[in-house]
Amino acid sequence: MKSRWIVPLVLIFITLFVGWRTSPNFLDAQYLMEAATLFAEIGLIAIAMNFVITSGHIDLSVGSMTVLSACLTAKLLSSGVPMAVGIGAGILIGGTLGAANAALIHYLKASSFLVTVGTMALYRGIAQGIMGAKSEALPPGMKGIDTITFAGITVPLWILVLATVIGIIVMNRTVFGRYVISQGSNPKAAKYVGIPVAKMTTIVFVLSGLTCGAASLLMNSRYGLARHDFALGLELDAITMVVVGGTSIRGGQSDVLGTLMAFLLIAMLRTVMGIANISAEYQLAAIGLLLIFAVIFNRITIPNRRATASSPASKLS
């Protein structure tokens, strides 16, 4: 069963149908696009998360990398740095934080789970320390990228689609992508056949950081300011998109297009529930259920290609 992205796609249409039947104002393309744009940053991060998970790792620090990049960039811009420099700095700050994750994983020989739980708290703590309870406003020229459209689609959604296309090509058509899949499928075997596992891990985490840096720019622009409590719980949404999209949480199997479909599904599902005035608690429960069903579905449909000797724990180290 190869094209697992069909499943979220079917669910999207069911969601849209339910929304149309239950809420008179739901089926409005402009509104649906605005609602989806609210999730574009998470979708972008989920594409990079797909590579992290496929390589057999996890990155729980994405929300904190995003918020720290956002805060530092906003501080830089308000100190008078030119806009182009600020944009470059935002992406590079994210990349640096990702590189720090990779270095900790490499030199401490610790699992990516433990390291990124640590940096999740660390990065947000630094952001909170820098910002306190205050917000940092962006220069007017940087605001409102979510309201700019190109061929009828908002810029953040275009960026997400572009990232997805690049992700699909890199994952399926390049040596790099093959290595990521092989490494996640069986890290020991990958090492024996000469795949530079340590280097691949570093690249994947730097990629995740760079993407968070880019996402932080979109987020800053959408809110018009930066705060330390932005992007809370973003890591869970991103991981949910990857898993619901049909990528194996155990690594070694990827569906980048599925991640984009799952992004659309979760954005639409949340929008349908929001406009139907379903209470916040039940909305969370519904997303949780979706994740559990996706895990069960993937377990049934994804063949376990890894040798039985390697336990899931060994892959995270």
Binding site: K2, L27, Q30, Y31
Partner: peptide, 26 residues
């Protein structure tokens, strides 16, 4: 498979695009 995927993404984008041009319902 990946070629199909890119194609489908393009179709989906244009689908949303078509929808958003007739925004009389706001």
């Amino acid at each position: 498979h990946s070629l199909n995927a890119v194609l489908l993404a393009a179709v989906l984008v244009s689908l949303i695009g078509c929808g958003s041009t007739k925004d009389g319902g706001t």
